[in-house]
Amino acid sequence: MGNQLVMYEEELQQINGICDGLHRDSNAKAVLVIDKNGQAIASAGEVDQLDVTSLSSLTAGNVAATGGIASLLKEKEFAGQFHEGEKTHVHISLVAQRVILLVLFDERSSLGLVRLRVRKAANELAAVLDALIKKMEAGSQPSVFAEITDADIDNLFND
């Protein structure tokens, strides 16, 4: 079980690039890439007014619950979800079983356009994630934890 996700500068830049591209090409309000366990990884667009941390956690909970429903119904997964609001709509898709791509959009775009652009972005994202996982598994990068001592951890908890 891969019990850790590590993000490096190079891959994050690529993921940010994919977010920016999707944001632009789909006329979306905002795009978020979220780890399946609810950690925000990258974003693009109008995110200043958003509580990205809460949104990420709730979206991951939503995807997990939907995945639970899928397995009860003997479906592998429900690849996408769409929530229609009065002004803002939400498109959620799971990419490579690993990260969630969330697109917020309004009347400047349409579900069809978002779906189309998400498909392309999801393929690009999957390729970056593949490379990232290979890099993690190869262990070619120095770990932050190699530098951290037990005393550093103790110090964090001293009042």
Binding site: Q4, V6, E9, L12, Q39
Partner: peptide, 15 residues
Amino acid sequence: MSFINYSSREINCKI
């Protein structure tokens, strides 16, 4: 699953 982000220099964990 912890998430170590070298770019934003964050260690994220779930309890």
